[in-house]
Design a protein around this nucleic acid. Structure first.
Length: 365
DNA sequence: AATCCGGGGCC
DNA sequence: GGCCCAGGATT
């Protein structure tokens, strides 16, 4: 005999006692759709702790969607730098301008779904949280909680339709319909704090008694997933060129694709075998070592070369070394600067160190 | 359905 | 070193 359907009312009681205090959650007033939208875009495949400081900086600098819509692209991209998935930032800009142009925040699933950067999940999340539409958005948390509650053993992504249908059953209760925003956020918080991927805290779970996976002792193994393909390796070289004022040479990447529209060091393409790496200018180039950076679908080994020059090439942007950059380029710039300034940096696996660096290494030990 | 798209924290 | 994260867009 199957356990009874978990009680939405019980989950809501748990949520009102244990919910996380998050800057985009308004407990003393109705939700701000701008805050809900901005947080949902930032939270796509990004953990709450990472998003919080970015969210706070955005709403301080851009208190309303109109101020965001009227800001220059590069100001917004700079504020996003480091958060990753930069297509989100480009879609954020287009989305803010589309909404500001209409003068009113869209409040239906279809009108939300039509906006750039808003897919099925985000439309449902904004609809439920900001406008109390009776729908359950399916994110990683809801997938996990639902797969466990109903002990769905089909591997993802094949299980998605079954999980969506089961999640809709959870939300199809009077208590959930009475507070759709709280109900979905309760599911998020349950998944983030109790029903975690590893070592779930089933003893503390308000739905323990109605969880089939827990009853069968298989909760931590769900949801199942199909194995992933191996990650290939690519190689490239990047050049850090610095002038006597400390300014460095950067260029902006094309608007689409990897790290789209973001700043980078000039360098080679990134290929499965090491490409030829002619320096952009004649200079006394130093080997600053190799950086390894893991992307979703490949692993990059980026060789850094560094040099000082009286004048930076006019074809490149001249910027202070503190310019906001994607994390990969931040690491590359710091390796190059460390090399030029005579500190350790790179060459760890190359073996051959200068006597100066050997002394430094001993000192640090 | 499969791929591309970042970065960071955790075990 | 692999997994996961309040996924979307493209093919």
């Amino acid at each position: 005999m199957n356990p009874a359907l978990p009680s939405a009312a019980a989950l809501l009681r748990w949520y009102r006692a244990h919910r996380r205090a998050l800057p985009w959650r308004a407990t003393d007033r109705s939700p701000n759709p701008y805050h809900v939208w901005l947080s949902e875009i930032m939270l796509q495949q990004t953990v709450v702790a990472t998003v919080i400081p970015y969210f706070n900086r955005f709403i301080t600098r851009f208190p309303t969607i109109e101020t965001l819509a009227n800001a220059p692209d590069n100001d917004i991209l700079a504020l996003w730098a480091g958060l990753g998935y930069y297509a989100r930032a480009r879609n954020l800009i287009a989305c803010a301008r589309a909404i500001a142009a209409t003068g009113r925040f869209p409040d239906t699933l279809d009108s939300l779904r039509a906006l750039p950067g808003i897919g099925p999940y985000t439309a449902a999340a904004i609809g439920a949280i900001a406008f109390n539409l009776p729908i359950v958005p399916i994110d990683g948390n809801v997938e996990r909680v639902t797969a466990r509650i109903f002990a769905i053993q089909t591997p993802l992504p094949a299980a998605k339709p079954a999980i969506a249908a089961a999640a809709a059953r959870l939300g199809n209760q009077p208590a959930a319909h009475a507070a759709p925003g709280d109900f979905v956020q309760a599911l998020f918080d349950l998944g983030a704090t109790i029903c975690t991927p590893r070592n779930p805290s089933c003893l503390l779970c308000p739905w323990q008694s109605s969880c089939t996976a827990h009853a069968e002792g298989i909760a931590p193994t769900l949801p199942r997933k199909t194995p992933k393909s191996p990650r290939p390796i690519r190689y490239g070289t990047a050049f850090l060129l610095r002038d006597p004022t400390g300014a460095i040479a950067l260029r902006r990447r094309p608007p689409t694709g990897l790290l789209g529209s973001m700043l980078e060091l000039p360098g080679t393409a990134w290929e499965p075998t090491k490409p030829a790496a002619p320096p952009p200018t004649q200079a006394n180039w130093h080997d600053a070592g190799t950086i390894t950076h893991i992307f979703t679908h490949f692993e990059l080994h980026l060789h850094i070369m560094a040099a000082t020059t009286p004048h930076l090439p006019p074809t490149l942007q001249h910027a202070p070394p503190t310019t906001p950059l994607p994390s990969l380029m931040r690491k590359a710039v710091e390796a190059g600067i460390a090399c030029l300034d005579g500190r350790s940096g790179g060459r760890k696996e190359q073996g051959k160190k200068t006597s100066f660096l050997k002394k430094r290494s001993k000192k640090l030990l």
